[in-house]
Simulated scan of single mutants.
Amino acid sequence: MASRHIYQQTVDEDVQQNDQNTCPECSGRVTTNSRETVCDDCGLVIAGERIDRGPEWREFDDDSTNSRRAGSPNTVARHDRGIGTEIGWGRDSDDRQLTQEKQRQLYRLRREHRRSKAESTTERNQIQGFVEIRRMTAALGLSQSIRDQGCQLFRTAQDANLLQGRSIEAIATACVYAVCRLNEQPRTFGDTAQVSKMDEERIRHCYRLLNRELDLPVPPAGPEQYLPQIASALDAHHETERRARELLEQADEHCVSNGQNPMGAAAGALYLASRQTGEHLNQDAVADAADVSAVTVRERYRDLQSVATA
């Protein structure tokens, strides 16, 4: 239980789950952070930019003065939390061109400054892990909040000495996968392996390690959580996706999809819904979008069809 306490204290507190509000478009779950309120199911931005984080001045193209006097906001996605110092280029504080000798001197200072940023092996490992997490979350199209939570989980795993003898890239990928599951926006191991430098087996091993040692409160991934991902890949109509969600709810009431691959159940529901709404999605295309076989789609389609006609 101590490891659970560590994770809950260090996880990104910027994200808050608003269970009382629902999306006005699809009645899905709404997530609120410090910047915007977004529906997790359809991606609708309900409210945004409640806090103005921009500068308090205005700049114009014909204004030669540089009014910027503050850096980027603090973030857990960097090992120094974004408060490090950067040495400028080319011009001094009065916007005058530097001499060649002064530019060479600044180049040497930047080089030494870059080397001194990581004072220990721990910080160097954090830099490498955070770079991988930022790259993978961008490739998967995940939000900034999930990126920050992934970096914080990596920091927690490092504090728990889980990186010793293991690949930094594998732990970073497992952190991204775990945070997606924690936010009920799951990605498959195949999806994460496509943007990672590690194979699926090593990602599974590191994820099981994180889940066991940190006692992560990971909810079970249901087929309805994978439904928006498959529908988006197929560019399915919103009515088809809504009908597929209803079929999955009926299947859950009759315990039809218990113990089955959630991706296969979501694919079968979407295929059956497309036939009922007249969209008629191709079976092979649905299987490819869900990364399952066409046989799995047909089997889940028949199971859901028996529930729909009951």
Score class of each variant (00 low, 15 high):
residue 3 S to T: 03
residue 8 Q to M: 00
residue 13 E to L: 03
residue 17 Q to T: 04
residue 20 Q to K: 05
residue 23 C to K: 01
residue 27 S to L: 15
residue 27 S to N: 15
residue 30 V to T: 08
residue 31 T to Q: 00
residue 40 D to I: 11
residue 41 D to F: 11
residue 41 D to Q: 07
residue 44 L to S: 09
residue 45 V to F: 01
residue 56 E to V: 14
residue 56 E to W: 11
residue 59 E to Y: 11
residue 67 S to G: 10
residue 69 R to Y: 11
residue 82 G to R: 07
residue 86 E to S: 06
residue 95 D to Y: 08
residue 98 L to E: 05
residue 99 T to W: 10
residue 106 L to K: 02
residue 113 H to Q: 12
residue 118 A to I: 11
residue 127 I to P: 00
residue 127 I to N: 01
residue 127 I to V: 12
residue 129 G to R: 03
residue 131 V to A: 14
residue 138 A to S: 14
residue 138 A to R: 10
residue 140 L to W: 06
residue 145 S to Q: 08
residue 148 D to Y: 00
residue 149 Q to S: 03
residue 149 Q to H: 02
residue 150 G to E: 03
residue 159 D to Q: 01
residue 160 A to K: 04
residue 161 N to P: 02
residue 168 I to N: 07
residue 171 I to G: 00
residue 172 A to D: 08
residue 181 R to C: 11
residue 184 E to I: 09
residue 189 F to C: 03
residue 190 G to S: 14
residue 191 D to A: 13
residue 191 D to R: 05
residue 193 A to I: 09
residue 202 R to S: 12
residue 204 R to Y: 12
residue 207 Y to E: 12
residue 227 L to T: 00
residue 228 P to A: 11
residue 231 A to C: 13
residue 241 E to C: 10
residue 259 G to F: 05
residue 259 G to S: 04
residue 260 Q to F: 10
residue 266 A to N: 04
residue 267 A to C: 00
residue 276 Q to E: 14
residue 279 E to V: 02
residue 284 D to N: 10
residue 286 V to K: 07
residue 287 A to P: 01
residue 300 R to C: 01
residue 307 V to G: 02
